[in-house]
Design a protein around this nucleic acid. Structure first.
Lengths: 332, 332
DNA sequence: TTGTAGGCGTTATCAG
DNA sequence: CTGATAACGCCTACAA
């Protein structure tokens, strides 16, 4: 910067002003400065800027896992979205471990990040308290903070409605004996989905028997295990909703292994609409999450807070799921 | 920091020394300082540290894509690896676009990152030249810089050997009429794999006909398309190697759709060993990439350069693929 | 419109 | 072993 200033015959403050475009600079000097900038190929140092102005155009993203889950979508779309704003993304894989979570949060705050996006927070309140006591904009994405009486803006899916849609579709296809494989039931969204599912079935005078509800963990293996469980208990059902595509595919895979033919012998509907749905046979009917919308919304909230100081504290955006019909559900 | 110093009755330099553990401090004063640190809950600001010492414990990672590809593994393992060193990761999705790539590199350098890991570089030389002219440690992972006469350390898979292993296994299962779906042939590793594959078949007196070689793009759809192509041309073959799991699964999916039974009618072997391999029916035999090894090696190289100043400039680590036998290849 | 000077929170250099 | 003091590179009052 000094070099530029010298070359252009101005002071560093003028150079700074030309770069930040925050004050009026005489066109002629501006031109000279810009030329000098090009000549020495000057690039403002973002660390120094971050130190001085407490804003280094950085966003932190915390996810509990990276591979082959819905979080990959959050990572992708959030990175793309912040990049559009000229920001960089610091990615933190918390492994769902509260301690790791806390460490990362600490790091991010010490880096003066401009915002933090959380996809899934563990329910440990110490992290939440840290977050409440900072003025760095925070947005939670994908997972509501349930009982905790904490006010952090969130971008969420209408999970209750997702359950309704899954049920409605299965019923419309003529199914009456229906099973459900949920996510971990200590997670609010799993319960919301189940409630919507159950309520809608009841609306159609179908009782979702408890013995046909299995708790999974959203992963592939738990879909397989759930089917093993149900089959071992000789339960009867013609359709099953798995609350994640991975589990749904686990279900399909296990039925195949057991010699069932899909969707003739049993119908499966998933949730998420990951890329996997087109890769299996039959292709998977599923409830889509609007990942990109969710991510864009989350980033927008942060950016608005940053630039306008807009009060997003009590904002809570709820987006709608979408039914994606493919081949894995049979009309009976 | 000032507060801590005041509370402990020392100067800020002493506080700094206690934190960085770089010089000897009297045990008693050290204890006082540490107590004061706890008392005011002091956390060193990483931006200021980054500015002063030009090292903010940050690593930049550039990938061409995030979702459902092998890059997800790189992201996961590299994040985990740098986290073990107490570093954070800045994730940049370049979309394979040279301009975006350049922008990100620029950003990273201006942030004084301690190192940059590239998984796939586009062949545009301007980026490479930037990288050569900086003293920030760089490691390329996964994709060699071919013809370019550029010296950047790299962590690579022995792709030639991968081709050999795929061929060897198919031959050992009795196949003699074999097809291959490659990655983009302007990428060196695709060619390496094909050459190893072809050479090994020839060693067994099998000629890999050009009409049985299809160029894909590593993605799911191109696997499907390749099969359409081969079938339309009424080619005969009993086994096919796809140079990525995604394409292999595209192949399987397309065969299923066309009414073939797998692996009885045709055998498929993939490459990568992604999580998908267990999700399809039949499960996919594949050539595994040691993703975690590759990532750990890449990060280790960078860290050694950072801490010991070790000269990694001409280092080139080549790791071996591993055959993973599952159900998708039939012995004939 | 432009220059000067001070400081953002650390660390490094140099005395003591 | 410890304390001043000066930077790191930039931004921003304040003054001119």
């Amino acid at each position: 910067m000094k070099d530029v200033a010298k070359l252009a015959g101005v002071s560093t403050s003028t150079v700074s002003r030309v770069i930040s475009k925050t004050m009026f600079v005489d066109d002629k000097t501006k031109a000279r400065v810009e030329e000098a900038i090009k000549k020495v190929n000057y690039r403002p140092n973002l660390v120094a800027r971050g130190l001085r102005s407490k804003s280094g155009n950085l966003i932190g993203l915390l996810v509990p896992e990276v591979i082959h889950t819905t979080f990959a979508f959050f990572i992708k779309y959030i990175e793309e979205s912040v990049a559009r704003y000229g920001f960089n993304l610091i990615l933190c894989n918390t492994h769902n471990d509260p301690e790791t979570e806390e460490l990362f949060i600490d790091s991010l705050l010490r880096r003066n990040v401009d915002g933090i996006i959380f996809s899934r927070v563990s329910d440990k309140s110490r992290v939440l308290r840290i977050l409440e006591n900072t003025n760095v904009p925070i947005v939670v994405i994908d997972r509501a903070l349930g009982s905790e009486n904490v006010h952090i803006p969130a971008v969420l899916l209408d999970n209750y409605k997702a359950g309704c849609m899954a049920a409605e579709y299965l019923v419309s296809c003529g199914h009456t004996e229906i099973a459900c494989i949920t996510g971990p039931l200590d997670i609010l969204l799993s319960r919301d989905r189940l409630e919507g599912f159950r309520a809608t079935l009841e609306k159609h005078s179908i009782n979702l028997k408890n013995e046909l509800v299995c708790e999974g963990d959203f992963k592939f293996d738990s879909g397989k295990k759930a089917i093993d469980c149900l089959m071992a208990a000789k339960k009867r059902f013609s359709a099953v909703w798995a609350q994640s595509d991975l589990m749904a595919i686990g279900v399909m895979r296990e039925f195949s292994r057991l010699g069932f033919s899909l969707p003739d012998d049993v119908s499966v509907i998933g949730m998420d609409n990951t890329n996997l749905v087109e890769m299996v046979t039959p292709t998977l009917t599923t409830i889509a999450q609007p990942f990109q919308d969710m991510c864009d919304t989350a980033v927008d909230l942060i950016m608005r807070k940053i630039s306008d100081g807009e009060d997003i504290l009590y904002k809570r955006v709820v987006l709608d799921p979408v039914l994606m019909v493919r081949e894995s559900v049979k009309k009976v």
